[in-house]
Design a protein around this nucleic acid. Structure first.
Lengths: 231, 231
DNA sequence: TCAAAACCGAGAGCACCGCTCTTGACGCGC
DNA sequence: GCGCGTCAAGAGCGGTGCTCTCGGTTTTGA
């Protein structure tokens, strides 16, 4: 049906426009975005928004999903642009991509990794896209192990953490050594600690050369993980 | 004047009670606490609060300051309770103290290290108490260097990060090697990345033994810093 | 001691918010 | 051409931060 399709298309356009305007408001007003302000920007009355989103939280969920997808795309693209065997290059590319995306979209980053919105609980749909960035990182470790370019640390992770890590690895990359996964998690944690510190306002004054500082800190974590310096 | 003192005391008591009620609301409602709800809990009318705090943001600032002091006290107490020469023990004690405080006061932690409140800008009074936790950490490094128990990494930090770190060190602990300070910053970043991840809801499901995971991750960073395993 | 000054709580009011419900208009498919 | 589904609009509910005014109390200083 063309007619029905037309209506569906204009409806989809409305939804997209609402999301775009909401994203713009998000950038200035933070997590507590106002439906009324969005409606005002679109020349509508606030209640009209509810034709397209059943509640403010659903609009927020849509924005969160889009943000996860955008971050995942950026990170995966950065990883793909590198030589598969250049583990350290991939690690740095992924870290820089995540940071660049966060700096370009601070409010959306805060939505994903900042303090949780008080009354809001993220639905299960957000779990899978949220896993994309760490999966890219684990992929680097996996490739390093299988190609022999990355030798896992020979230390033993004490129980019960080892078992937890083993179960986690089984769901992602079966056979990944627990000690290596642990260090990968450390790098992943460090990455978002770095971005959060930079974005949420500590540290900034003290270290003016932020790009270089970021690269150096992520290089430290690459050392900890054991990524070889020469590809 | 006794009379004046009485008035001042009851006023101080009111301020304390307002902060206590606000802190209680913070724990449940998150960063967007409601002045009206606080007033309601105290059997007052909302406008009466303005006799004690000129605005909601000033009340928030008071809570932030108190939270920084509480975290600083907890961290410093943990550090003091250790043998001065047990660098690794001090490191773990400090990390555990920060995490314990954060888990016990999640909303206040979010206020300090979570997404910034949109319209709010922290005043300069918050800078000094915010520096207390990292100062404790740097103190461990300083003690380790002076006692010879901690050998700084012999690598060279590339410019311009080295100069930034040198200037930062000059304001804190003159003479601290830049490479060591960089690794200390990495540990500091990692610590709050860990806490934020745990508190803001990622990771939880995957790793049920959180205490042990936390200890293992901080031990990794202790290795990176170079803290000796045997005191 | 007693008036002046400072302080305090209550209340009304402003503009804003998310959300619900009803009403009237418009466009689409039959 | 008509009925149905969709839509925007408006009124209204209870909530928010904040301002201002108005009485009443307490403290101060002559």
């Amino acid at each position: 049906m063309v007619a029905h399709s037309i209506r569906a298309r204009v409806r989809a356009g409305m939804i997209d426009e609402i999301k775009a305007v909401a994203r713009r408001h998000l950038a200035t007003d933070g997590a507590n975005l106002s439906l009324r302000a969005v409606a005002r920007d679109m020349g509508m009355v606030s209640s009209a928004i509810y034709r397209y989103f059943p509640s403010r939280d659903d609009l927020l969920t849509a924005l969160i999903l889009e943000a996860y997808e955008a971050l995942g795309d950026a990170v995966e693209a950065a990883d793909r642009s590198c030589d598969r065997d250049d583990l350290r290059g991939r690690w740095h590319a992924v870290c820089r991509a995540a940071r660049s995306w966060a700096l370009a979209h601070p409010a959306e980053y805060a939505l994903l990794y900042g303090s949780p919105v008080p009354g809001y609980a993220a639905p299960d749909d957000t779990i899978e896209p949220a896993q994309r960035p760490p999966l890219v990182l684990v992929g680097i470790l996996r490739d390093g192990v299988t190609s022999g370019r990355l030798t896992p640390p020979d230390e033993e992770v004490p129980e019960p953490v080892r078992a937890d890590l083993a179960e986690l690895a089984a769901g992602l990359v079966p056979g990944l050594p627990e000690a290596l996964l642990a260090r990968g998690m450390a790098g992943w944690t460090q990455l978002f600690g770095l971005i959060s510190f930079e974005l949420f306002g500590r540290i900034n004054r003290a270290l003016p050369h932020r790009d270089e500082y970021f690269d150096h800190q992520t290089a430290l974590m690459a050392d900890l993980i054991g990524l070889p310096r020469e590809p």
